[in-house]
Design a protein around this nucleic acid. Structure first.
Length: 468
RNA sequence: GGCGGCGUGGCCGAGUGGUUUAGGCAGGGGCCUGCAAAGCCCCGUACGGCGGUUCGAUUCCGCCCGCCGCCUCCA
């Protein structure tokens, strides 16, 4: 049974589902106004890993993640570039999915757009006004934060303390600095929808309430996002639901930030901050492994060094797959996610069930992926050792277990021997011939040539193997 | 100022009231190899500081120091 940290209670507790066997997961998605950065990549990977592990455990998962396509930043960029908001949003959204696909993240089952939910948001806001939990001002409609008795639950501090720390003054008409905009009245040229308060657009915090309840229903299981969304975004979502008397998310899951040089990554930093930049020079699986090697609630340091370290780990995994010609369970998995029972049944060599159990014990403990992966790397050593001793059966079983467990968290192993071109093939054959003839000068010259062309040259019992 | 989190061997990163104290990377030694590469074997007694509880604390409590995050848009 999975135990997860829940921000609302500040504790790790067993995951009790609304419906047995079925998990409903809502993850706050991107505001589409710019290229996705590695912080977006991390939260996507964290929740992809969570989702895959839930599926691996035999649960059915319904994963919803929104796209915020109306927002101040989109409006600003559209104005700056002389384009429409819809153009900017569409372009950035395409970029978003391309990056997430490249990271190997499964697409959500639903990806609702804020602009498609405006009437529902207007209805919610009108109801909040009718209940006295929201009020109209000159520039919009605001939520009364003190209408929610336990406001501050996710921020883990009481309203009075939040109010004391507020860094923003109350604007004209706002009754408390913490009151937040549900509806923004349109300024000339801005995108707008009709409402009882005149033309305007919804505030950011309302869409997730309406969309999550519409698609997943009351009392859905998990609501996730980055730790920087805990307050005020998630707090404010919850405030609206509570004021409406709705049963909202049962667990709040928040991932830690990406840091560079010990500080939260920001767009002003140079270090390959976008996913496209990262993937231009690194295997996307290395980033997944890097994310896996940190606990999801802790910060993860992303630098050339930590990425390179992850790449070396990946090479170790791939090296085993190459040596043992391991199957790729992910390629065969329906829907792209592995299910334990199926993966085990599909393995001709069998799997080391004890190792799978240990892996699951770590994962069940609030997604202890570093601990789980340590076990996987231990299996790699054991598989090699068995192969060294000529115990092919054991090597194969252990290796298959590695492939299954890596696959469980979305990591596909690559054998990397597939596309060796004709010319390279000929050089390799020539080198084998030279070695047989003990013409080592010739053999070494060919090896230098191959290495210069970017190949890794390994002489095995069956002759030379090259890979990249 | 308020709230939250963190500080483990060169680096990343689990874990535990005491005995044999994960795993990876890097490093050293050995085996294998024509030489390499890959792989295997061996090697590191670490837990921010000061007190306290205890027969015994890295692990529990308190204080202190340091770092980070949130309190504004942010994954």
């Amino acid at each position: 049974m999975l135990r997860l940290h829940d921000t609302a209670t500040g504790s790790v507790r067993p995951l009790e589902l609304r419906e047995p066997g079925q998990v409903s997961l809502y993850v706050c998605g991107p505001t589409v106004y710019g290229p996705p950065h590695i912080g977006h990549g991390r939260f996507t990977l964290v929740f992809d890993i969570l989702r895959r592990y839930l599926a691996f455990s035999g649960l059915r998962v319904r994963h919803v993640s929104n796209v915020t396509d109306v927002d101040d930043k989109i409006i600003e960029r559209a104005a700056r570039e002389g384009r429409t908001e819809a153009e900017v949003a569409a372009e950035c959204e395409a970029e978003w999915w391309a990056a997430m696909d490249a990271l190997g993240a499964l697409r959500p089952d639903d990806a609702p757009h804020a602009t498609a939910y405006v009437p529902g948001m207007v209805a919610l806001i009108a109801d909040l006004v009718a209940r006295g939990a929201a009020y109209e001002t000159d520039d919009g409609v605001y939520m009364r934060v003190d209408a929610v008795p336990d406001y501050g639950l996710l921020a883990q501090q009481p309203l009075s303390s939040l109010r004391a720390g507020a860094r923003v003054e109350a604007t004209e008409g706002k009754r408390s600095p913490l009151d937040f905009a549900l509806w923004k009245k349109a300024k000339p040229g801005e995108p707008q929808w009709r409402s009882p308060w005149g033309p305007g657009r919804p505030g950011w915090h309302t869409e997730c309430v309406v969309m999550s309840l519409d698609l997943l229903g009351e009392g859905f299981d998990l609501h996730g996002g980055g730790q920087d969304l805990m307050f005020p975004h998630h707090e404010n979502e919850r405030a609206q639901a509570v004021a409406e008397g709705k049963d909202f998310a049962h667990y709040w899951v928040h991932n830690g930030m990406v840091t560079v040089g010990g500080e939260k990554m920001s767009k002003s930093l140079r270090n390959f901050s976008t996913i496209a930049e990262l993937l231009a020079s690194h295997d996307s699986r290395a980033y997944r492994l890097l994310v896996l090697r940190a606990h999801y609630r802790r910060p993860v340091e992303v630098t050339q060094e930590t990425i390179a370290d992850a790449e070396r780990g990946l090479a170790r995994l791939d090296g085993l797959a190459r040596r043992l010609s391991l199957p790729d369970p992910l390629a065969a998995a329906p829907g792209g996610a592995l299910v334990r029972a199926q993966a085990v049944a599909a393995a001709p060599s069998g799997v080391e069930e004890d190792a799978v159990d240990r892996f699951c014990e770590h994962m069940d403990d609030d997604l202890d992926t570093p601990g789980a992966m340590a076990g996987v790397f231990d299996l790699v050593s054991r598989a090699h050792a068995a192969a060294d001793e000529g115990d092919e059966k054991t090597a194969s079983r252990l290796g298959t277990t590695v492939a299954v467990l890596a696959g469980a968290v979305g990591l596909a192993l690559r054998k990397g021997v597939a596309e060796v071109d004709e010319g390279t093939r000929r050089l390799v054959d020539e080198r084998d011939a030279a070695r047989r003839a003990r013409d080592f000068a010739r053999a070494d010259a060919i090896r230098d040539e191959l290495v210069a062309a970017g190949w890794v040259v390994e002489d095995g019992a069956g002759g030379t193997v090259v890979h990249r």
